[in-house]
Design a protein around this nucleic acid. Structure first.
Lengths: 355, 355
DNA sequence: CTTGGCACTCGAGGTCCGAGAGTGCCAGAG
DNA sequence: CTCTGGCACTCTCGGACCTCGAGTGCCAAG
């Protein structure tokens, strides 16, 4: 099929998308005639619409309804017709300050990001954390916080801090813990978490008797601290209620399926997986390789970086009918903002150390 | 109105509730006649049902439908008719191990608890964290984790650990930080967070010039670390999608309102507030002082303890039509389990220190 | 190539009706 | 006095039917 539509056809297609995105309803030739001055009568517009329908860009829900853009039309629109809108400056500020308010806590950071996505785009927002396996461990510290509780502070490349409280049977002195911290950081720092885990297992098995009892215990603690997280903990979804406001999800049965599918984080994760590699921002429409299992859902997603090789993903999920020129920049803004935060670049928001 | 129903009326009411909870549909005299052997004909059952209707225990959606229990009926059922079911032993184990997997992180603990509530009760689960104002600070520690990042570890009574990464302009040595930690813990340990905040402000204002520059900075850090959390961070809601499966919320408009209302955490919090004081487990039906703004929603809630004076709340929200004998014990189980965890009592799940 | 006109199609919404489910009440039996 | 079968009554649900209006497709004339 030739994708080369003439100028008039493009203008009409663009207008149909604009109106349909706005109203959510099928667009008729009459509406088009009135809404915008093409200098053409409804009949002529109908002819062009018929061509667009033949070309696979439009469909009609039934004979006597207007036309609705197909996924193909959206694809064409996104690739060729659309001009991005600049994001408002105060939006950047809001994003930066909201992310800053997570205060270095990685979980809250991802949560804040997905919440922002949901709020700003008016759709379901999600963030997929980078795969922890390839994260590089920088240091590991133990801190005794209460008689049988030890705080394990794990610092990953690039200065991402994860801390975790472990309960212990044995009691440790702070000096012991500091020695152990230093030793472990020396032994395992610079390795990826996957390597650390493997090496820990080997070392624990091997040095059973030989080694110092204390370090053996410390390795045990480290192992417990580094236990790999459930897949559910790698994916953050917020704003699922937003779907209720979209007319395309007004029937309960659809909603039921879709909302329940958001609860199955593990499957979502595997669906998203293939897009991790994709550079830049992509729009995945339902009819294409589906990000979600439901063809009615589509996604706008982009990747973000955290350190040298680590990438995660974030984006929004909603109906294909969305304001792309507004939504795409929002997703990209959050991608950049999250990368900046994770790589330790200061956001341009004012920040004082004292008081 | 006299609440003293004769034995037969009680039996019938109980059976009506049983059947209605099971099916979700209005119950007819015929169904009752067939389902259970009362030794009475449908006509007689109808007479009793008419009495129960007069007494305000039953209503009919319309003339030719069966009867549906009113909130009053549920109240009577809960107070007088119901016998709790024992929770299965493996349920306790699941709860304990799931809560243990949060690994001392208070946020994840509350999240896990509300998720468990949602899952086990098949309704919306929620946890309200204790009001941080009255929490007693035990110690405050600083740990340098990266050039301009400091981990602030705050230990509250009873050994609840909260840690937070702060970014700083100035660079601190670990020795400085340790001195500051000791000093701050000495000065502010044992006070409630509210007192700490006030005292910090006073001290910062007063000793402007006099005091050591280092401690002044440390106080600034402490203040940033203890900034009070947004109300949204005190309330954890999980499993909102569960409502989709309840036939009483099958129309989209209701769902829209209800699900959106769950997103407004701040208002939820204020609605829950009054039940914090209530001892034991209570069932709040929609027609009574509403926990939620919608009279169709009802809640089963209980409080849990964390330390001497601190109490929080947890429970489930759903339609009044629920299996009380099963749901109430679940809520109580989680209340106990959460108290145990927070007060440092070991749950009876096996736990080894090493390996 | 454009346009007004016109016949055609199809869904939305209203009305009507019959079937079925339940009830309330009554009169008669135990 | 209580229980029960019988019966009339009510009300919802679903299907059949109809009309209205929106939109289209096509054609013939400009």
């Amino acid at each position: 099929m030739n994708k080369t539509l003439d100028t008039r056809a493009r203008a009409i297609l663009r207008e149909i998308i604009r109106v349909h995105v706005d109203t959510g309803l099928p667009v008729s030739s009459r509406t088009l005639f009135k809404s915008s001055r093409f200098g053409l009568s409804p009949a002529s517009i109908r002819n062009i619409m018929a061509d667009l329908t033949d070309g696979g860009f439009l469909t009609q829900p039934h004979t006597s309804a207007g036309r609705v853009p197909t996924d193909r039309a959206y694809r064409f629109y996104i690739d060729e017709l659309m001009r991005h809108r600049k994001v408002a400056f105060d939006l950047r500020e809001q994003v930066d300050s909201d992310l800053a308010s997570a205060g270095g806590d990685i979980t809250r950071l991802f949560q804040a990001a997905s919440r922002l996505l949901a709020e700003l785009a008016g759709e379901v927002g999600f963030v997929v954390a980078p795969d922890a396996l390839h994260t590089v461990l920088k240091s590991l510290r133990f801190l005794s916080v209460a008689p049988h509780k030890i705080l394990v502070v794990q610092v990953n490349e690039p200065d991402v801090v994860i801390s975790r409280v472990l309960e212990t049977d044995v009691e440790y002195s702070q000096t012991e813990l500091e020695a152990a911290s230093a030793q472990l950081t020396r032994d395992y720092g610079g390795l990826t978490l996957e390597q650390v885990r493997r090496k820990l297992l080997e070392d624990l098995a091997e040095e059973r008797a030989a080694c110092d009892r204390m370090f053996e215990r410390a390795r045990g603690l480290a192992q417990r601290a580094l236990e790999r997280h459930e897949p559910e903990e790698r994916i953050y979804v917020e704003g699922t209620a937003q779907l209720l406001d979209k007319p395309e999800f007004s029937d309960v049965e659809t909603l039921r399926k879709v909302l329940h599918s958001f609860d199955e984080k593990a499957r979502l994760l595997s669906l998203f997986a293939r897009y991790l590699e994709a550079p830049g921002t992509c729009v995945v429409l339902g009819s294409e390789h589906a990000v979600t299992e439901d063809p009615r859902l589509s996604a706008v997603l982009t990747s973000y970086r955290s350190g040298e090789t680590l990438t995660g993903m974030l984006g929004v999920i909603g109906p294909a009918r969305r304001e792309y020129p507004r939504v795409i920049p929002v997703v990209e803004l959050l991608g950049r903002a999250l990368s900046d935060r994770l790589e330790g670049r200061e956001a341009p928001v004012s920040k004082t150390d004292e008081e």
